[in-house]
Design a protein around this nucleic acid. Structure first.
Length: 448
RNA sequence: GUGGGUAUAGCUCAGUUGGCAGAGCGUCUGGUUGUGGUCCAGAAGGUCGCGGGUUCGAGCCCCGUUACUCACCCCA
């Protein structure tokens, strides 16, 4: 017996909810295109070898197999086995290498697609979800300025959405790695993983973790925490880091990079960007700038947009394609918008006008009226049966259709706004609904 | 993958010591002989997640199982 109930981690929206999601997708697409990003779509599957190339064996990747295959257990070891992509950055890197001869560099693209992760679902965490990525990839080198530009594009895109204020937190891998190396902590990934828990479990527990799991001395733990506690909206973090007295070449390089990003970004998007030296980022292909974004007041939800600089993800022989990009968690955002009622659609259907039937014989004439309205861009449906007008109006009311159209025996027309009850004479060739009723509107709730 | 909680109508949930399966909302019909929402009356809707056990008798107790959910892990 096939399962009919919803599957955990594979969200499906109702029409009214889908309209909110579509609004988010449309807004992102428009913003990305305004900044000259081209759209591409990559296939849903990659080879296992491609996906796990960076050694992320423990990633929860969904494999793909035919039910009829008899050798079903081959996938784990077979690098040519197929699997659903885990994010959009790795497939994009593969796409760039494969099509390098046809692309003009620096290549800027956006990509809005589903991705799959076999994790245990929770609020804001799905197994199938939509990401909206923008990336710029260069041939050989990529000017550092793009690290700034992408942060600004993302800030603009997020600002256009019906969501609470956000904070784009920026850090730099070189800075962190150099610092930890400078104080004698070599397991950078391990340190970052512990530091990443700072907000959740507090500095004392993190200090314990650093000492217990990574063998750090109390002094090293203290220094690591001091770095992680630095958080400024301007470039004053530079002096704070220097005051910690750690000398390292990589640290100096990362510090200079982050200073440049923050200086430019805080000038262009004041209050939305912050240097936050506790930001870690899990994915290990990032090599420089890293970004993470939280909704103010919804920090529990986790990051809703993150990314970074990756200098070595895509290579073709001796040719390198360094990139920088960010990914918006569309599904995570939409699920929060819906569960908190942050925005709602004004109706559940596109229909603006329902043309009623006075009798069943008038259906063809009603279709004619509908066609005249549609020719001017008005979404119209025609009643299927000549039920009592009360029922036909109720049909519109249940769906939020704002207008009901009547054609009288003498050939004249009237249109009724069912919210006000106001009914006026109308001409199918000239009448227009108010602009706000033409298509469903997404209204943001007043921020609490 | 690890640990906790939950599972009864479309939805939210009651269900007493183990004794006839319930409410509100929603849906449908009528009151209303062609203009909805309020109101009134009525109706439909159930394998009590699934399998087993105890018992004269199980929604309730016991065992197992699955799903959902929360936290961990990880991350958008």
């Amino acid at each position: 017996m096939a399962r009919t109930a919803s599957l955990s981690g594979f969200p499906e929206w109702l029409p009214q909810e889908r309209l909110v999601e579509l609004h988010v997708l449309d807004t992102l697409r428009r913003t990305f295109e305004l900044h000259g990003f081209a759209s591409i779509e990559t296939r849903a599957v990659e080879t296992v070898g491609q996906l796990l190339r960076k050694g992320e064996i423990d990633k929860e990747v969904y494999g793909l197999s035919r039910l009829q295959d008899d050798d079903d257990s081959a996938s784990r070891d077979d690098a040519n086995a197929l699997a659903l992509h885990f994010d959009l950055t790795v497939p994009f890197a593969r796409y760039v290498v494969e099509n390098a001869g046809y692309l003009a560099f620096p290549f800027r693209r956006y990509q809005i697609q589903k991705v799959w992760r076999g994790e245990r679902p929770q609020e804001g965490r799905a197994r199938e979800f939509t990401q909206a990525d923008i990336d710029v990839v260069g041939d050989g080198d990529l000017p550092f300025r793009y690290d700034v530009e992408l942060a600004l594009v993302i800030a603009e895109a997020l600002s256009a959405l019906p969501i609470p204020p956000f904070r784009l937190r920026i850090n730099n891998r070189k800075l962190a790695e150099g610092f930890y190396r400078g104080i004698g902590l070599t397991d950078t990934a391990g340190v970052l993983r512990s530091i990443d828990k700072l907000e959740k479990i507090g500095p004392e527990r993190v200090a314990e973790l650093l000492q217990e799991e990574l063998g750090a001395t109390p002094e090293q733990a203290k220094a690591a925490l001091e770095l992680a506690s630095i958080r400024t909206e301007d470039t004053s973090f530079v002096d704070q880091v220097r005051a910690l007295g750690v000398e390292d070449e990589l640290l100096a390089e990362g510090l200079a990079e982050l200073e440049e990003v923050i200086a430019a970004a805080s000038a262009a998007a004041p209050g939305k960007v912050v240097a936050d030296l506790s930001i870690a980022r899990g994915l290990d292909y990032y090599t420089g700038t890293v970004y993470e974004t939280v909704l103010v007041g919804h920090e529990q939800l986790g990051s809703i947009c993150s990314g970074g600089r990756y200098d070595a993800l895509a290579t073709k022989g001796s040719r390198k394609f360094p990139g920088v990009g960010l990914s918006i968690g569309v599904t995570r955002l939409v699920s929060r918008i819906l569960s908190q009622g942050l925005a709602t659609a004004s109706r559940s259907v596109p229909t603006a006008v329902l043309v009623t039937l006075a009798d069943d014989g008038s259906w063809p004439a009603a279709q004619g009226v509908a066609a005249r309205l549609r020719s001017r861009g008005i979404a119209v449906e025609v009643a299927a049966k000549a039920e009592k007008f009360g029922k036909q109006i109720k049909y519109a009311d249940r769906r939020g259709i704002p207008f009901v159209w009547f054609t009288h025996a003498d050939g004249t027309h009237e249109v009724k706004d069912i919210r006000s009850g106001e009914q006026v004479v109308a001409d199918p060739d000239t009448w227009m609904p108010p602009a706000e009723d033409l298509v469903p509107q997404i209204a943001a709730a007043p921020s609490a």
